[in-house]
Amino acid sequence: MIEFIDVRKTYGGEIAVNGVSLRVETGELCVLLGPSGCGKTTLLRMANRLVEPTSGTIMIDGEDIMCSSPVELRRRIGYAIQSVGLFPHRTVAQNIATTPELMGMAAGKIAARTDELLSMMNLEPARYRDRYPSQLSGGEAQRVGVARALAADPPLLLMDEPFGAIDPINRAEIREEFLALQRRLRKTIIFVSHDIPEALFLADRIALMRSGNIEQVGAPPELIASPATEFVKRFFGGDRRMLLLETTRVAEMTIPPAGPGNPRAAIAAESTLREALLALMSGDGEHLGIHDGNGGMLGEITLGDIQRHMALAMRADGEPRR
């Protein structure tokens, strides 16, 4: 768990981060989202003391980060950045081994760990281990960057647009892989992004920032359906209903029990409302069965159920609360 308490950062007279408080729970992926210059990267870089706060406190698992030396602190925190910053003179394996080596892990253990991480990132160890960064594609380099951040198995990960420098198709793919990995590893992650679909796709919670302040913190559907400010509403743009469909899971709505007669089609409760909607429109029945992924039926929904849920979620057309 990491907690920012009234953290400020000013450069001369310029305010970069203006007294932000934020708590990211253990195992949670929190995306810092916002336009460039909103202070999200500065906030992230204060967590491993690459930037020292002007005032305020940052606690990791209840301990003030100022109690550890910056170097010690950073070795305990994973760090991945947009431009990757792989060391061009070191092989992929040596790059991944950086932090374990600094921490004095035994060579044999490092080698095993490196291979494990490469496989985890869907890079075949035998093929990639001895390559140099210049021999990698953009997507491969970003995967190695993430593997390097995970190398010492840190409970906390700081990621600054780690998938920002690759083409859209590969980005979608690497994002999905990463989310699957995170569901397994359950790291505490602070993830900086300026890309709305990426944030909605990955985040457990989003902290939307503007000019050094957090405008709103919440789960993606919450920010879309009930924006706290005009800025939040405008930030997600005109197609907020569509975004809500894409980010809300069927499990989040009230699922009426199944009526008599089996529905023809069924989908998992983990699916999004958008997927449910598509299934309802392409199937010929009025009802869509919902299962729990393990063969158990939870109930069935209709188009009307989705409409009702949306109407409730977007109450008063999502006018800002303040």
Binding site: H89, T98, T99, A149
Partner: peptide, 25 residues
Amino acid sequence: PATLDAARGLGMTERQIFLRVALPL
């Protein structure tokens, strides 16, 4: 700069950054 930022973020000391990253490059 990203290479040096990564080195720092991964927990190298200034001396390690100079000897292991900057000097070889």
